[in-house]
């Protein structure tokens, strides 16, 4: 698979904490890559570096061959990388529909001062995206009135509305009701596959990982300690014990 994004030797420390301690990772064109690992392992830091929120102290991030490390977030977004957030980042005083329409407007770069945001074409597109996330009935609800799960979904929907080539999702299913999780990831995966979008997602639900990821990278203390197909990685007793927290009865000490 041709890599679309290549992280090479990324390092970033906060004081004494090495949040990234030599990260090397390729993401293939159209690939779904899951990132797993305990809290504080540096997963969010990796996404923050790839999207320009944090600048690595050393290393390169190649996007189709160009080093984008240290570019401001908007420049990276303009190149086709979008993200969603561990804590949803919505425009709280706007309705869900307007949140989506703003993302579409930003993507289109159409900034006439006199034409309305809620123009028919954008409204229609926003409603279609919301339908995919099961949010259409909440279109006119203010974002600060949503429950945690819906906030999470609206946050991802906004990233999807940017029509990226690579979508980075930080814990997309945390906060989403267990009964809705798989259905939503299924819809999301279908949309992304149809358009050939690559995805990197931090995930704690191993069922989601094994069903939707092409590959799994395991994070621990700022390093990648395992990287491979889900069946292999999730079966590794070391990974099961250290990362997933499952003690296999027959595992050797």
């Amino acid at each position: 698979m041709k890599p679309i994004l290549q992280a090479q030797g990324l390092r970033l420390a906060f004081g004494g904490v090495k949040a990234a301690d030599g990260i090397d990772l390729d993401v293939g064109e159209g690939e779904f890559l899951a990132i797993i690992g305990p809290n504080g392992a540096g997963k969010t830091t990796f996404i923050n570096m790839c999207t320009g929120w944090l600048k690595p102290q050393s290393g390169r991030i190649l996007w189709r061959g160009e080093d984008i490390a240290g570019l401001p977030p908007r420049r990276i977004t303009q190149r086709g990388i979008a993200r969603s957030f561990q804590l949803p980042q919505l425009f709280t005083e706007h309705t869900v529909l307007r949140n989506l329409a703003l993302a579409i407007a930003a993507r289109e770069g159409a900034f006439s001062l006199l034409r309305p945001l809620l123009r028919p074409g954008w409204t229609k597109e926003a409603m279609e995206i919301l339908r995919g996330f099961g949010l259409e009935s909440l279109a006119d609800t203010r974002a600060d009135a949503l429950n945690e799960g819906s906030r999470k979904l609206a946050d991802i929907a906004m990233a999807v509305a940017l029509k990226p080539r690579l979508l980075l999702m930080d814990e997309p299913t945390s906060g989403v009701a267990a009964s809705e999780k798989l259905g939503i990831v299924e819809t999301l995966a279908r949309v992304l596959r149809e358009t050939g979008v690559s995805a990197v997602f931090v995930e704690h639900d191993m069922e989601v990982v094994s069903r939707f990821a092409d590959r799994v990278a395991v994070w621990s203390q700022g390093r990648i300690v395992a990287n491979g197909p889900p069946e292999a990685v999730l079966a590794d007793p070391e990974v099961r014990r250290e990362v997933i927290g499952i003690e296999d009865a027959h595992a050797a000490p």
């Binding site: 999207t51 929120w53 401001p72 977030p73 908007r74 977004t77 303009q78 979008a82 993200r83 980042q89 919505l90 425009f91 709280t92 005083e93 706007h94 703003l102 993302a103 930003a106 993507r107 770069g109 906004m158 940017l162």
Partner: peptide, 11 residues
Amino acid sequence: TREARLEFMGL
């Protein structure tokens, strides 16, 4: 309400 999100939308 959420200035950082504007940045991440390319605006």
